[in-house]
Design a protein around this nucleic acid. Sequence first.
DNA 1: CCCTTCATTCAACACACGTTGATTGAACAA
DNA 2: TTGTTCAATCAACGTGTGTTGAATGAAGGG
Lengths: 205, 205
Amino acid sequence: MTEPRVRPTRAQQRRQTEEAILAAARQMFAEVGYDRTTIRAVAKAAGVDAGLVMHYFGTKDELFSRAAKLPAEQLPAEQLPTDTAEQMTEALLASLATRLDSEPVASLAVLRSMLTNTAAAERYRTAAEPRLNQITAAIPTPDAELRAGLLSAIVHGVIIERYLLGLARLADASPDQIIDLLRPCFQALAAAQTPPPPDQPPTDS
Amino acid sequence: MTEPRVRPTRAQQRRQTEEAILAAARQMFAEVGYDRTTIRAVAKAAGVDAGLVMHYFGTKDELFSRAAKLPAEQLPAEQLPTDTAEQMTEALLASLATRLDSEPVASLAVLRSMLTNTAAAERYRTAAEPRLNQITAAIPTPDAELRAGLLSAIVHGVIIERYLLGLARLADASPDQIIDLLRPCFQALAAAQTPPPPDQPPTDS
DNA sequence: CCCTTCATTCAACACACGTTGATTGAACAA
DNA sequence: TTGTTCAATCAACGTGTGTTGAATGAAGGG
């Protein structure tokens, strides 16, 4: 039983090193954001020289760009049903539940840097857009676009507070508990039905 | 008709210069965040030398700390009624409407830097906490804390997307339109009435 | 075997930053 | 007027950054 490869081929080695750098970069971008992530620190975390990072990725921006790409995990073809608002809502909640369980590091990298880095903000926008359009398509009212924007803002607000700010109330709750509370909220936004006439709902009795 | 003061007194001049520096700093912190804000750039925007900024504020952190303090505008004693969930909800919506109309620059400075600067994150937390407690106090269910956390996350998600990301759907809408859409959403979160019984959510079929 | 390729390292550059200390000159108190 | 205070400037420091280019040495192909 010889180890499959004591000496990996050159191409293998290269891909492996590149992946180690990308993983370290992703982690660091997600933890401290674009600006506070240094090439040198990424290199050290990946166990290589800083020059090598530049040699492979050319530029810090390019490194971020590559690191922020999802490794074909989640985004691909994850599309919401647009037939009815209820279906879409439920699918959106399910997607949120998944993300509340474990959000991919690459996404966290984008989210963390979004507010202070133009490229990250742009990536966020273009990543959110198709999803936004799907949500819009499932909502039958003229203000569907705004409603979809609000739904998206809620999703990201929750994820930001849970992962990036670590606010206890959201960080400690289970995904199911959160989406159960959010369900009527989403339904109210997605379906344009006027909710049970707002006389006073029973406050506590 | 002598101008009221051709030569302002020394104390006046000092306070005036300090305020100019603070205003420039606030603006810049709000626009590009803590890291990308430069003492030199703030000084230039305020029309003074960089050394003077240090002389007055000692440290970039201290400058941020001073610039991020609200000029006694909004936060002071703005407390929500906690008698009933409906009152609280309505007050929360009203407060949101105000903020959607014009959020103080100092707040935007904190929000912009929140994800990449520990001090900003801490300030955000301590600023949000009393408000969170008020919201919690108005909700009669055992999971009131989580519900309050969600309400807070929604508020900040909306503000972030509107002001800091400038997403068109939220940036172009009127405050009233937004809070009208959010009202049932908030009511569903604040009042614990069970929505129409959730029969099985269709997983994917 | 030799020569090329290339993954990797090393030392250095140029620059921008936060910060410091000496210096100037006008406001102020006597 | 004289001496002190202090707002403001200026030039410089040390440091950390992204980035570069030459050097090294093992892998791979003929």
